[in-house]
Amino acid sequence: MKEGRTHKRFQKFGMVIDLDKCTGCGSCMVACMAENNVPFRKDESNKLLSITWMRVYKLTNGMPFPETDVCYLPRPCMQCAGQHEGHSPCVSVCPAIATDYSMESGIVSQIYTRCFGCRYCMASCPYHARYFNWWDPIWPDGMEKYLSPNVSPRMRGVVEKCSFCFHRYQRAKDRAYMEGRRELQEDEYQTACTQACPAGAITFGDLNNPKHAVSEMVEPDPKHSGRPKNPNAFRLLERLGTNPKVYYLSSREWVRRAGDNYLKNEKKVKKPVHHG
């Protein structure tokens, strides 16, 4: 009751992943699994069935030896805002409102108990960020001891995906409220993958806050649905208009081009125009 709602500032949490720094080590994937009680099975080599909220893809430039080059691309959920904030591809199709766009944080939630497993959202997600639980999770005897109470284990028949470690946001906010603060410091809420990345390749913060590193790094252009002004920055499948909140940085042209589908003879990525 200290402050009214008038000061409410919407945040837009987002991520910048520096692909020059990313070594493809996979720490982010495992940090996510350990943080979010992600189950595992005996055979995880069928990647369509393997639940990895964060998945690191290997990209190749397709050139023959010795011009070959490889780059890794970590892919969490992009937390798409859509053309009009809130029209994420997956949110728009969910008949059960099991997945929703939070205007306060910009995070696309997934409420497992509402999900009845129609998987429309999976079909609509262009980033393959969603996973279906074809089986109940089973932890070997004794291993359930490490499960975190902050994240509910999922059951067979529901869809799950990266939540930007939403429970960490809650935890940070709870703490801030307890200390009588309304606003979170930049480092108070960080996702598990960001924290773990040995290379410091992931930066996380509020894209609406120009002082946060994420904004400084990519300079999102609000007039063009957050398209990055930094010429080395790009978003995956930019032209679909999903308006993702995950940005990538790369100094390699072929990597930036790999982030979207281009026609064979199409020229360089068109740089967004800078509107004074």
Binding site: T113, D136, L147, S152, P153, Y169, Q170, R182
Partner: peptide, 25 residues
């Protein structure tokens, strides 16, 4: 202002629906 109620609702619905095979840490 806190998202906590959402979390609690989420959790309580899980508990009330009782999925006996899914561990509740």
């Amino acid at each position: 202002l806190s998202p906590l109620p959402w979390k609690l609702m989420d959790d309580s619905s899980i508990w009330t629906q009782m999925w006996p095979w899914t561990p509740v840490p």
